[in-house]
Amino acid sequence: MKTQEELTEIVRDHFSDMGEAATLYVQVYESSLESLVGGVIFEDGRHYTFVYENEDLVYE
């Protein structure tokens, strides 16, 4: 099982292909040891929320 830090790095790496991230945040109260819930805000103003669970990243 991966730590939240490892899950955060996986998510950060995925979003790095989409541009320069200004902020990546984790909603600790919705996350667990198995999943990471949060969002990313890019330098150009785009904002996505995400759920990373079971090696699957879903974002909108």
Rank of each mutant, 00 (worst) to 15 (best):
D56R: 15
V51M: 06
G45P: 02
T23M: 12
M18V: 05
V11F: 06
E34V: 09
E43T: 13
G39L: 14
G45D: 01
M1N: 10
V40K: 01
A22S: 08
E60Y: 13
R46V: 03
T8C: 15
L7C: 10
L33P: 11
D44C: 11
A22N: 07
L57N: 03
V37N: 02
Y29G: 04
G45N: 01
D44W: 13
V26R: 00
L33S: 13
F15K: 01
D13W: 13
E53R: 11
L7M: 06
L24R: 01
T49F: 11
Q27C: 15
V58Y: 11
H14T: 06
G19N: 05
L57Y: 04
V51T: 08
V51I: 11
Y48A: 00
T3L: 06
L33W: 07
E5G: 06
D44N: 05
A22W: 14
Y48P: 00
E53L: 12
E34N: 14
E5L: 08
F42H: 00
H14N: 04
S31C: 11
A22R: 11
M1G: 10
A21T: 12
L7Q: 02
G45C: 10
A21D: 08
T23I: 14
T23A: 07
L36G: 01
E20A: 12
D13S: 14
F50I: 02
Y25G: 01
E43H: 10
E9F: 08
V40C: 08
Y48W: 06
I41F: 09
M18E: 04
V40I: 13
S32E: 10
V40Q: 01
T49Q: 05
V28L: 11
S32L: 09
L7T: 04
T8W: 13
R12N: 04
N54H: 08
H47K: 05
K2Y: 06
Y59Q: 02
G39Y: 15
S32G: 09
Y59P: 02
H47G: 03
V11T: 02
Y59S: 03
S31P: 13
V37F: 07
T49R: 08
M18D: 03
G19H: 05
T23V: 13
V28Y: 13
Y52T: 01
V26N: 00
L36T: 03
I10D: 02
V28Q: 09
K2S: 05
Y59W: 13
L57C: 11
T23Q: 09
G39T: 11
F42S: 01
F15R: 02
F42G: 00
L24G: 01
D44K: 02
L24M: 07
